[in-house]
Computed example of a mutant assay.
Amino acid sequence: MAVILLRTVIFYIVLTAIMRLMGKRQIGEMQVSEFVTAFLISEMAALPITDIDIPLMHGFVAICTLGCLETLISFAVQKSVTVRKALTGEPVVLISDGKVIEKALSTARITLDEVFAQIRGAGYRNIGDVQYVILEQNGKMSVLPKAAFDELTPNDMGIGVENSGMTHPVIIDGKINNCFAETAKIPLKETEREARRCKAAIRDILYMTCDDLGNKVTVKKEKKR
């Protein structure tokens, strides 16, 4: 039992490192090659964990080989259009100008029920409201409405709006997030000054955000009773 426990911990660390090396895609955003690699890695890890007669090194070699292979494939996909098309495919236009392209549906093996569900999910009542529906390489559908059914924006109304940019979480749960602090160009002294303004130490702040215009929002932690 102790051996299996130890093997599980070791493979957990190795798998976490390999998956971290492969990137941060979510399951729904994986390409086919990435999904196959993740599936094979999980299967190869299960065997040495449960069968103590299989040397750990055999599992390590197989898993590391797959991880390195996927990393090389990802690099090739970035650099070569031909490799990218072969491994990830191309977007498929399912609806154009409100008209269903039946051949594209057949090629992609997508039903009209699925297309209608995506259109409803995007907030449109019927196909006539939609300019394009595109099946992306990751299997998700992009729904692009016709101009008459698109959301009204300040730009459409001729209203000038100042761009506040991104909101940076500078402090989270009493700890400074150095990555976002650097992005927001907020030095440590300014962070401490903002904390003092709220009559709190940095460790007592639940979160502090700052947008690109310098507008800050600071919320203190609730006092424990």
Rank of each mutant, 00 (worst) to 15 (best):
M30P: 00
K24D: 13
V14Q: 00
V161H: 04
S80I: 12
S33L: 11
V100K: 04
N215Y: 14
I159Q: 06
A122M: 08
I4C: 06
H58Y: 14
T37P: 05
L206H: 10
T191Q: 07
V9W: 09
V61L: 13
V170Y: 02
E90R: 09
T71P: 04
D51F: 05
V61N: 08
A195T: 03
N138T: 15
D129Y: 08
V3T: 13
C68K: 08
A38Q: 06
K224C: 01
A46H: 00
E43A: 14
E182D: 15
P187I: 10
K24G: 02
I52C: 07
I127A: 07
C210I: 15
F35L: 14
L94N: 00
C64V: 15
R193F: 11
V100C: 00
G89T: 05
M157C: 11
R7G: 04
E114T: 07
A76V: 10
I13L: 12
K85N: 11
K220I: 02
T8A: 11
I202C: 06
D51M: 07
P145S: 03
P48H: 06
D53G: 09
Q26S: 13
N155M: 14
I4D: 02
G214W: 01
G128L: 10
T191P: 05
G160I: 14
D113G: 08
E151F: 13
M1W: 09
S42V: 15
I27F: 09
S74Y: 08
Y132N: 03
K199Y: 10
I186S: 05
S96P: 01
E29S: 01
Q31I: 12
P55H: 13
N126H: 10
V81H: 11
E136H: 03
K189Q: 12
E29W: 00
A2Y: 12
V143M: 04
G59S: 07
K85A: 09
T71N: 03
L105H: 01
M22C: 11
I171P: 04
E222N: 10
L144N: 06
